[in-house]
Amino acid sequence: MSTDLPTRFRDGKVPALARAISITEDQRDGFEELLHELLRAGPQAKRVGLTGPPGAGKSSLLALVANAYRALDERVGIVAVDPTSPYSGGALLGDRIRMNDLATDPGIFIRSMASRGSLGGLATTTKEVLDVMDAFGFERILVETVGVGQTELEITAAADTVVVVLVPESGDAVQAMKAGLMEIADIFVVNKADRPGAGRLAKEIRQALHLRAGEALHDVPAHHGVDLQNVPLELRPESSGDSERWEIPVLETNALDGAGIPDLVAAIGDHRAWLEGSGELAARRRHRTRGRVQDVVQREMRRVAWASDEVRRSLDEGVRGIERGEGTPYSVARDLLALLLR
């Protein structure tokens, strides 16, 4: 590692950014000091996450969206996360295949990441890698993660705006609801609109969203029996909070011919304006910062816990004790904690 890495990073040298990401991703010695040095300015970039099942067209969409931001002269950083093979620990990262049009644009930086044993769609260090890219000065950061079921939830901790990408093949809206996608999506995209069933899926999602928002109450013939505690704020009498809520759009796109991309870019812009106007951006960033501190503390505690020979020796002895019937995992753990907190 070169000693003047932070200097070269601040001078805008792309290899320095690439190396800073590697150091972070590998959690190499000294990476937290490096992050401390690089991240002084705090988050500036507009961060957009795309998540959805493999093959939904996330990378293809991302390339088109990135192009749209380039046309607006924004510098764009892209992180694409793909799963690590649980068998070999290796990974085949193919997202760049869809981004070849962007390959030599100096205003674009693309980084492929393997999930490396993390259960969520994000690698454990993805959030920190996004921070590093933010510090480098990209106005826009786009992050793609594979989402299957619950694993998408992680992306809310990394992005300001979450775009959930589905395709007619991914099933119906009920499945999307079960997978918890309704909770994380700021924008829904039904991609592959050229295929049959896209319109129907979009309609189902809209209905499911309306149901969730309680708008079905409009159809309730009389008001009696409705407990106002359970009625969303904006439907309560005299509520003026309507403008405060974000109305989740459901868009149809075709990444092969670009149809619907301008609408998607517009929706991301609308969501940004809402984030800033409602105070939600500050709230999300605060939540994220809090999580980052907790992550670092937990990581360090885990490291410290097993770093001393004394603790490791006590663990070995404790395990042998358990085998002799002289204790349980709980009594041994209690002794170890006493040792650590001494």
């Binding site: 093979s85 290796g90 085949l92 990262l93 193919g94 760049r96 070849n100 390959a103 693309i110 492929s112």
Partner: peptide, 28 residues
């Protein structure tokens, strides 16, 4: 390479040397 535990970035067909080098630098 993946099965050997490497992280492999594959960029598809028709790469120019400029594209290859740009990807190699960004991906470190």
């Amino acid at each position: 390479f993946r099965d050997a535990g490497f992280e492999v970035i594959y960029t598809g067909l028709h790469q120019t040397p400029e594209m290859i080098v740009s990807a190699a630098v960004q991906e470190d």
